[in-house]
Amino acid sequence: MLIVEDLLLLLLDDETGTPAKAGTLPYTLGGAVLVELAMLGRIDADGEGSRLSGPLVTATGDGPLPDPLLQAAWDEIARKPRPVQTLLLAIGGDLWTTVVDRLIAAGQIRREKKRVLGLFRMTQLPSADVAHEAELRRGIRAVLVDGETPDPRTAAIVALLSGSGALPELRPLIAWSGDVYRRAKALESGNWGAAAVGTAVTRTTTAIAAASAAASAAVIVTTVNS
């Protein structure tokens, strides 16, 4: 499964399928795809950009990518270098439906149609197979609560969750503490320690997490003020 699939699976409520931080989801999902491309060595975020929009992201490497979702994102980036902030929405804006369909096809969630009060139709996306998600949660808990060194994939997922602000909302809840907060923020800022897979990857991941966090904060402020 892709990082974006694992991330959405973690964000979805196991009973209803309602995602945590729904308003910022496009930025978080877009960030997950960009991080995966960075870990494959297919993008770099080393170009000059503004403080608000983040560094410019450029496509690197050649040849087909192992997944059509990643290929479509890389093709979008290859059109022209753009700031991280712009690409998050360009790539993540329509990903919700695509990733949900992929999770259903993989047997991780299912689609249920129900009536509320016998009148209103609604669709829910409860978990169908909890084993994979439970393993993801165990890995996150081991890193944040027990202080284990993460593998690069887990480090990237925690960085994205931390940047989106959704980390405290994971179910079951993590026993939140100062140490947990500091470990999450360290990963968000690119301090992966032995998990580092190269300066370019951690630099790009850090830029993506920072842009996702800024976008999420902007959405929240706009929502509160509207």
Rank of each mutant, 00 (worst) to 15 (best):
I77C: 10
D146G: 09
S212E: 07
G178H: 11
G193P: 07
A200M: 07
R203M: 13
T123S: 08
D46P: 10
I109M: 06
V35G: 04
M122A: 15
S177D: 06
D151K: 08
A106G: 03
L167Q: 05
G47T: 08
T222P: 01
I43W: 00
R141G: 03
T222S: 11
L160V: 08
L136A: 09
A218E: 11
S189T: 06
T86F: 14
M1E: 03
L12H: 01
A105F: 10
A90E: 12
A200G: 11
L119P: 10
L144S: 00
P150W: 03
E112P: 13
V158S: 08
D179I: 15
P64C: 11
Q85V: 12
V224Q: 15
I174Q: 01
L103R: 00
R102S: 02
G47N: 10
G118F: 04
W176M: 10
R110W: 15
G63V: 06
R111P: 14
D14A: 08
E36T: 01
A45T: 04
E36R: 02
A200K: 06
L103H: 01
M39V: 13
D46Q: 13
D46F: 14
T223W: 14
R183S: 00
V35T: 04
L34P: 03
L11P: 11
W96C: 03
E148T: 02
R137H: 12
L25A: 08
V219H: 08
A207Q: 06
A156S: 08
L29W: 04
A196R: 13
K21Y: 09
S127Q: 11
L160E: 07
P64K: 15
L69C: 14
L29M: 07
L87C: 03
T24D: 06
F120C: 09
Y27H: 10
L29T: 02
R79A: 12
G41Q: 05
T204K: 00
P81G: 01
R115M: 13
F120L: 11
A210F: 04
D46Y: 14
T205G: 04
R203A: 13
L103D: 02
I157K: 11
A128G: 15
T18G: 05
A59W: 02
G92H: 00
A59S: 13
G47A: 12
A175R: 09
T58Y: 08
A142L: 12
I3D: 02
R51L: 15
V100E: 02
R203L: 15
P19S: 05
R110T: 14
K114H: 15
A128Y: 13
V100P: 01
A210M: 12
P172H: 06
L160P: 05
I157T: 05
P126H: 03
G41F: 06
A210R: 00
G93D: 13
A194E: 14
A207I: 04
D14T: 15
L34H: 13
L37I: 03
A155G: 07
E76F: 13
